[in-house]
Design a binder for these strands. Structure first.
Lengths: 132, 132
DNA sequence: ACTTGACCTTCCAGTAACTGGAAACCGTAG
DNA sequence: CTACGGTTTCCAGTTACTGGAAGGTCAAGT
């Protein structure tokens, strides 16, 4: 499939897809006319990249995560260690995201209609929880 | 408090904190010696920035979110609309993050020890769910 | 009083991850 | 065979930091 279709299916702009190829995150075939030719596996990689990038993982972290299932040579224990480390980070992100959601939920539900100078709940926003 | 302390408490490097001031995300006092002087409210803003940036929100989105509770002039209905829009995005992110967690959990639990060429669960990684 | 070292200041340059635009090639529809 | 949309490469610009130099500040030690 052409880059435009891969872009639609992955949610990434063509520019970004070419950039990911430049930095070695994927290696699509080329058709006889020189056009890039994406497989479904490529699209899966791209979707994975779209998601994990939008969730705040760096390109290098994404590269590492992709290597977990792409690299047949890698030691299983190694895979497990990296996966566990990322899991901890993901769980932290989940908790923070849930906190943000609760805060906004409260703002939308309770600070609507009254004009108090500042909503104390929101005033304490991001004031709790683990740092780093 | 000085920038170093604010950095510790917010989890952001001093460089980044100065940068956020440059682009107008906060406006700490200055002590007589010219040093920036951060209040607890400043630290709360910084922590909020640290979190939402690490969760994949852009600086402009963060600015908008901060304005929700900082801008006394803003219409309540306006606040509510913006908060609801961000909530939808946060819920989407939560679902994607949970998916990523399940995938990695599976990888760590089940693909450990055997050397099958590729784990079918992981092979289908990021292959499901809503795009955009 | 003086020095040392950690912390602060500004400024300017560099990096990461895109993003936009030009110029030219490809491919299908009329 | 011409239009026009999609694709190519290349180069420049943007966003969000990040590193480093050159110098001012401050608290501790001698």
């Amino acid at each position: 499939m052409n880059i435009g279709t891969a872009a639609e299916q992955s949610g990434l702009p063509p520019k970004t897809i070419r950039y990911y190829e430049d930095i070695g995150l994927l290696r699509p075939d080329r058709a006889d006319n020189g056009y890039r030719d994406y497989s479904m596996a490529d699209v899966h990689r791209l979707r994975f990249l779209q998601r994990s990038r939008s969730l705040g993982f760096s390109v290098e972290e994404c590269r590492q995560l992709l290597s977990l299932y792409g690299d047949k040579e890698r030691e299983s224990a190694d895979v497990k260690a990296i996966a566990e480390a990322k899991l901890a980070e993901i769980n932290r992100k989940l908790a923070e995201l849930a906190g943000l959601r609760d805060m906004l939920r409260h703002l939308a539900d309770h600070c609507n209609g009254d004009d108090r100078p500042d909503c104390p709940i929101i005033d304490g926003l991001a004031g709790h929880g683990t740092v780093q």
